[in-house]
Design a binder for these strands. Structure first.
Length: 867
DNA sequence: GCTGAAATTATTTTT
DNA sequence: TAATTTCAGC
């Protein structure tokens, strides 16, 4: 912990000393010179940093220096003596973003920033506040944070108890509904009755209520509760709210466009000046004199009811509560940074509306636009801007750059997804030959199933890649199992954890036993663990199960005793070993078993950072994210969603086809709003690129196993012709040789509003007819494509204009070095990704291996080792 | 209680 | 298609 009692000491600014109270004047006086940290900011950034009073919205487009503004602003507040580190609330969405801010702040201030206790994610800060006041939410301060899986299992039990068919009404769906309600700040009593009735013939609301009750009994909270319970506590206990309002002199919010209603309410409560001024209950906002706009009516209703302004009529809610939250309390210094054009989490409850309505919600707000982009070249930026301009619901920004135009954005059509992957693979090799690092190459897909094709291709080529995103570290089964053991040790009442591991590894304690324990536990109102302890003393169980269960109980008792005398990391190791859990994975011969054991080690290692088991368990659910990737030079493969906030020199964007991108499902479910969100996703994708953005679409794609012909994405038609170059995929087979596309593709774009008249659609029609002749059964497109492209004649007549002699059939491309492989036919081998297999064919350094689990694959020999 | 075979169902996923 | 999940039979 650093002490920052003397703010001026921690800064580099050129004016020696100042009195905190004179900060405003001093700042103005210094404007021409300025502290060192301000130099290098452009005028808008600087304004965003220096506008300390009142609400500020910084609209920061992609690549405009958003994080820099946020961190510099904090440094500025500190150096001006406006607030001490503990008086600044700074919230992000991800741990990664929080870490990044801490890191950069540390650099700027020249030391570690443990002194910023309130810099963190919404959930970690909400969790922290909730632990402080846990008893007000009928919890103990050591409550468990449940993850989605625990949630669903709990709900499943509730559904069973209610005799609801969980086929017809899946627990997942209910979890989604409850999550949605919580995102909107709705407690069980506040859910609109219509919505509550939708699930299980009217039982939805009741289930939500009993779910909450169960959580309290289990001493657990889900992610939504971390904020929702905060809001409730703030509302019911104005004194507590006031305490926080007084503490937080400045509030900063990152990625404001991604906030949901609950987060908005939470921020709004905290951002009001701590005045106990009473207002008329029943109104969130005082009638706004100059705005009689109807558009806000709907939202006000939503917000009012979410806020609980009907609360005064309900039992248990004091009038006080309703009043302090109220309306026109002067707003404090809140600064929200975001970009409405990068709002891509609407489906998760994010309300773009929050950012669109900022000026309305925070009267007198200053809005600052950051439009100077320091990332991408002219063509890329123009393409992205033009595309996003098709959206209607936006605040409007025009990104500009002083960079050169650079290369045009390319659009390439491929016959099918396999060819798409092949073409991209080759372009990447080309980029590599030109000297670029693979670390500067990313492939961004709309849906994760698109990744497979690339992985297969890269494995064949021997091109190093890494998948970013996917299941998070703490979501992996082995980690959660291990955590469940520790949870049961830490709190014997954690039924969910107990249930998870009673029979992992297998101990012969199946459903019947667990069911029995449940009955027993419910009858006596005791936790499952205690029920188990009691049951082994009876002869209700068969001897075998009884013995196993007794062993489990004894083991846990022993571990709990050991806890007093053993370091928590050692204890964890002991538990994993003695329970047979480690052994279970050691015996497992599947490919990822080794990785799982490695993860378990990593888990134990990571416990060292915490003082004790309790502290570890409290933070693990909130803090633990994916392990930091290796430093190797490798292509990054990820979804568009997980690419937000990243940048690369070269960005490949495959799969720009109607149905896939924009996603049909989003269109069906969200209509125009969905389309706009998809378009924002496209915008995010394009703006990840610094030097090169390359778009692809395939004419044929296999969806759920069956081939279908697709048409190019409407987003392609929305790109400005001047900044885009149409190229042909190697082999040119996408067009079946009609060859008819070139510069004219976008010529008359403006003339046609409908996608049915675009060149893209017309071409697709032509292709479709052709495809039918080929007899479009299963797999036929791929076969057709490869048979075409393996014909030398074909290559000759439609050959690539951009590339040298046609290389056919990717597999053959790898020059057989002549050196014989060190492997022989029939060798048993191991591959990192595919596991164990047998060599069935050797072609130079390329091996064809029949994997036990993954089937037959072609692999470069250096990627496998003898088993 | 466990195992393999049939049935089911397919986005995106910050915490 | 393929991965997951449920179910019937041992």
């Amino acid at each position: 912990m650093i002490r920052m009692t003397e703010p001026s000491k921690i800064t580099n600014h050129s004016v020696p000393d100042h009195h905190p109270a004179a900060g405003g004047i001093a700042a103005r006086a210094r404007a021409s010179v300025g502290p060192k940290y301000l130099t290098g900011l452009n005028p808008e950034q600087r304004e965003a940093v220096e506008s300390l009073d009142g609400p500020v919205l910084v609209l920061a487009g992609a690549g405009t220096g958003k994080t820099r503004v946020l961190t510099t602003r904090i440094a500025h507040i500190l150096s001006q003596g406006r607030a001490r580190p503990g008086e600044i609330l700074s919230v992000t969405f991800t741990n990664k973003a929080a870490r990044e801010m801490k890191h950069r702040l540390g650099q700027m201030l020249g030391q570690a920033v443990e002194g910023m206790p309130w810099l963190g994610t919404f959930h970690s800060i909400g969790g922290r506040i909730l632990r402080t006041h846990a008893e007000l939410a009928q919890l103990k301060s050591n409550f468990t944070v449940l993850d989605v899986d625990d949630q669903v299992r709990l709900l499943k039990q509730l559904l069973q108890a209610e005799n609801i068919d969980d086929k017809r009404w899946p627990a997942r769906m209910l979890a989604g509904l409850i999550d949605g309600w919580k995102n909107r700040g709705l407690s069980p009593t506040q859910v609109p009755s219509g919505e509550a009735a939708m699930f299980a013939n009217g039982k939805g609301g009741k289930l939500y209520t009993s779910y909450q009750e169960r959580l309290k009994i289990l001493n657990a909270a889900d992610f939504g509760d971390l904020l929702l319970e905060n809001i409730r506590i703030f509302r019911e206990h104005p004194d507590i709210l006031r305490q926080y309002q007084q503490r937080f002199k400045y509030i900063l919010v990152d990625e404001y466009q991604d906030t949901n209603v609950a987060q908005y309410l939470w921020l709004r409560l905290l951002s009001q000046a701590p005045s106990p001024k009473a207002v008329i209950p029943g109104r969130l906002e005082e009638p706004n004199p100059e705005s009689g706009d109807e558009s806000t009516a709907r939202d006000s209703t939503l917000r009012d009811s979410a806020m609980g302004f009907d609360a005064a009529h309900r039992p248990g809610m004091t009038e006080h509560a309703a009043m302090t939250v109220g309306a026109n309390a002067p707003t404090k210094n809140i600064c929200c940074v975001g970009d409405d054009d990068q709002s891509i989490y609407g489906w998760r409850g994010a309300e773009v509306d929050n950012i669109l309505r900022f000026e309305h919600d925070f009267p007198g707000a200053k809005v600052i636009r950051l439009e100077r982009n320091y990332r991408s070249t002219g063509h890329i930026l123009a393409a992205a801007s033009h595309l996003i301009a098709h959206n209607e619901g936006r605040l409007g920004k025009t990104l500009r750059t002083e960079d050169e135009d650079g290369e045009k954005v390319t659009v390439t059509g491929a016959w099918d997804s396999e060819e798409e992957a092949r073409a991209i693979g080759e372009e990447i090799e080309q980029i590599q030959r030109m000297g670029d690092k693979l670390n500067e190459v990313a492939i961004l897909v709309r849906a994760s199933y698109q990744m497979r094709e690339f992985e297969d291709r890269f494995v064949t080529l021997g091109l190093p890649y890494r998948v970013i995103g996917g299941p998070r570290f703490y979501e992996r089964a082995e980690i959660r199992d291990a955590l469940a053991y520790l949870r049961v040790i830490n709190s014997p009442a954690d039924d969910l954890a107990f249930e998870r591991i009673v029979n992992v590894p297998k101990r012969g304690l199946g459903d019947a036993t667990v069911q029995m324990l449940h009955d027993h536990a419910r009858k006596r109102r005791i936790p499952l663990f205690e029920a188990a302890r009691a049951v082994v003393e009876t002869d209700e169980l068969k001897p075998k199960a009884r013995g196993s269960l007794r062993e489990v109980v004894t083991q846990f008792d022993r571990w709990r005793a050991q806890r007093e005398v053993t370091a928590h990391t050692d204890l964890a190791q002991i538990v994993l070993d003695e329970s047979g859990y480690t052994e279970m994975w050691q015996k497992d011969r599947s490919a990822d078993a080794a990785g799982r054991l490695e993860n378990l080690k990593e888990l134990v290692r990571s416990m060292e950072e915490f003082e004790n088991l309790q502290g570890f368990l409290e933070h693990i659910a909130l803090v633990m994210d994916r392990d930091g990737g290796s430093e190797e030079d490798a292509v990054s493969l990820m979804t568009l969603h997980s690419a937000k906030g990243l940048e690369f020199d070269n960005v490949f964007l495959p799969g720009w086809e109607e149905g896939l991108f924009p996603s049909q499902r989003t269109l069906d479910e969200q209509g125009r709003a969905g389309l706009e969100e998809e378009r924002r996703l496209a915008h995010v994708g394009l703006t990840r690129a610094r030097r090169r953005a390359k778009l692809y679409f395939a004419t044929n794609r296999r969806i759920h196993g069956t081939w279908s012909t697709t048409i190019p994405s409407r987003f392609l038609d929305e790109l400005p012709a001047a900044n885009v170059e149409i190229t042909e995929s190697k082999g040119g087979s996408a067009w079946g040789g009609t060859g008819g596309y070139g510069a004219s593709r976008f010529d008359d774009m403006e003339a046609f509003g409908s996608s049915y008249t675009t060149p893209g659609w017309q071409r697709a029609q032509a292709n479709r007819n052709r495809g039918q002749g080929g007899g479009g059964g299963r797999g036929s497109f791929a076969e057709e494509a490869s048979s075409f492209s393996s014909s030398p004649d074909f290559g000759g007549s439609f050959g690539s204009r951009r590339r040298g002699p046609m290389t056919i059939e990717g597999e053959l491309v790898a020059k057989s070095t002549g050196t014989t492989s060190e492997f022989a036919l029939g060798d048993r081998v191991f591959h990192q990704k595919f596991g164990y297999g047998r060599v069935v064919k050797i072609d130079g350094n390329k091996l064809t291996i029949a994997f036990d689990k993954a089937g037959e694959k072609k692999v470069v020999d250096s990627f496998v080792q003898r088993a």
